[in-house]
Write a protein that binds this DNA or RNA. Structure first.
Lengths: 229, 229, 229, 229
DNA sequence: TATGAATGAGTTTTCATTCAT
DNA sequence: CATGAATGAAAACTCATTCAT
């Protein structure tokens, strides 16, 4: 009798499975998981176009034909990987604020920022490879781009606009056009994530400290003089 | 007899030529220019790996073999495009400060930032397609990445560190680790450039205003309250 | 409890079963019938080589493996379809004339022709798709061709030669080499069947009239002048 | 120095070239001719669907990729073979009868039939393999069928109707619906060609004699008695 | 120098067939 | 019996690169 121990391998597999079955009730077969794992690995390493299906099949330990039983084309395989992850990007934004009421659980913009950064750093860390694939392919895959812009980005922005304007009204943040404020904020957050995970992943980071500094920067800038209120 | 008028086409060709012959004394032949133009176009549109040399040759109006007369491999063609542009990224940083003396022509960090942003926006606008190719391929082309990190990035950082520390010493900017300060600054600048050129190129931008706002943000943040000095 | 009513579907199934079990005592299972029906449909529509077994299994509503349970190879499936039909082509010729005696139930060649055409039109109509498959594949499938020539064609010809020579001896038909006479006759008959079923199946045919005309043509040609006896 | 002798090989190549460049001014390259020759050979032998491009390339003595330089798809290769031959089927019918005048160079239907049969036997003999491919694929290739029906068959029939009705009016042939008369005639002609070239190509045929007999059959049938005028 | 025909290894994809369940 | 996941060989087609002209 096979004893099901929770090896690291198993954990990874479960993660992939949970990750890529969003909204579907089918379970993935072990071969399917291998294929997805291998594809994520190689796509993120060499890029979608530069990856051959034969390489994926080898890495996954399945026959090449098996890939095409599950995914009609190589492009379908890509979509099966990036699609659910895109949807998950939306999650923290749509959970709240249902039925039109602005349900803001944060007392200050800083508090919101901290929660947001911690949450998204965690998400990005867990989905690092897939996000890399997604970012790489958005410029080139019309299908992916359309889905991302229409279903994800616009909805996220909608929500973020609400939040920013909420705190503008409360007098917490300055009177600058909302898109510009969002750009400032996201630049700093994304800038941190990119450095943290992509450019210098091996540096010895103190995440809490860096997040605090980043938030302080977003709120107060880097000048020693007081801002010209 | 063909009269050589300075058409827009010609200007573009000269630009490409100037752009891609950095540090070499050879002149580019017309065919070579066509090839480079076509390659830049298609690489930036479909990605390096997804572009076929036959497509480039067609767009360039030359025979397939001609490409390989000038560039031994498809990869060499890529390097011929991104290489000189990488070098040019370095230019504004190395022109000054030669022979070890810190020659700082800016009276304040703000002034430096403004000059920097205007200059780099101009550069990025002119080299947009090539920069897009470069950014896309850095993760996948070890040659490109190595060259970028060793010859370009490290030298830019070196210089920027000097500048930032100069103004830290002058008491203009806060006592936060220099790499973090650089990250803040570059995140905001790059964030602006990406929005401006990549994400919303068609929006009606007021560059001067946005640059001012961005600098104000970097210096003073977005909070209405004074920073806790 | 399922009541077995004799729906049109059932009739079709029985027909297939009767058709394809010639000379065997096994009964076909329902799955087998589905497979054969589907295969006949798709083979006749797209051709044997251009048909995939997966397409057949889908159309038949069975698993891919099931086909290979009944028919070891795709080619065996083809043979299972065309084999019995070939045998049935022989039927009207071998029912009579057994034990060497020329048992000729027709008083005139015309009478024979009429019976023959009516009978074969009926047969061809009922077996249209299978005959189409057979005709298409005879040139390419050595197995099929050999079986057809040795077991079917030669025996049919043998019998037809007897008949034609019988009426030649009786002085009813002209003194032309028998193979040529058979060619004349079969060309006209087959020409009618092809037009009737294959080339213009949707035309509003008056079969009795056309058969009469065809027989008149075979006997007397199309000239208004009398033949030069 | 290469001596250009008119070997049988050369004659065959010229024939193919002449055959397949109908209406185009490009010349075929030697490789292209090899490819076409090989494709005609194998398609007619094994059928279009059952033939692999690798087999064609081997037989043609070229690399597989070379086939696709000339013909974008396997299907294009098929069309390049059957298209011009279809057009040539039309030739003897459109040469005459231009500008609406019925220009009938034959004094009797028999004379027309003889010329027609000799001409078409010659054509079929020369184009035997291609015609075999054409006949085999017409049922399965919508493109081929459409082209055949619209551009070829309808035009041939138009012309043949004119001819048949011309001789009906002259009182040479019987008052039977023209389509039926055409069917009689073509059945006999095609029946001869099929026997001659396809079913019994190795028999020792006396073509002149057989053509005479066939024409006599079409005109007067096989009965010894006079027709019932 | 420039060409473009030719290549053959490689790509994505299909498919008849097998086999553990 | 029946399934359908899995296979791997082969299919159609692509592509960077070479080379004779």
């Amino acid at each position: 009798m096979k004893e099901e121990v929770s090896t690291e391998q198993n954990i990874e597999e479960q993660w992939i499975e949970e990750l890529l079955t969003l909204g579907k009730d089918e379970k993935l077969t072990p071969k399917q998981i291998s294929i997805l794992q291998a594809a994520i690995e190689v796509f993120s390493e060499k890029g979608y176009s530069a990856t051959s299906t034969s390489e994926i099949s080898q890495k996954a330990g399945v026959a090449e034909g098996t890939i095409f039983r599950y995914y009609k084309t190589k492009n379908d395989l890509l979509l099966a990987i990036v699609g659910p992850t895109m949807s998950r990007m939306l999650a923290p934004f749509v959970l709240r604020n249902f039925n039109g009421v602005l349900d803001m659980p944060y007392d200050s913009f800083e508090e919101f920022l901290r929660a947001f950064m911690i949450n998204r750093l965690d998400f990005a860390r867990k989905n690092f490879k897939i996000l890399k694939i997604l970012i790489q392919e958005i410029p080139f895959q019309p299908t992916v781009r359309a889905q991302f812009v229409e279903n994800i980005l616009s909805k996220i922005l909608e929500r973020v606009i609400d939040i920013v304007e909420h705190f503008k009204e409360k007098g917490e943040i300055i009177e600058v056009p909302t898109p510009t404020l969002i750009r400032f904020t996201l630049s700093s957050v994304v800038g941190y994530l990119m450095n943290r995970l992509l450019l210098q992943p091996d540096k010895d980071w103190n995440d809490e400290e860096e997040i605090n500094l980043t938030i302080a920067f977003i709120m107060h800038g880097i000048s020693k003089t007081t801002p010209p209120i």
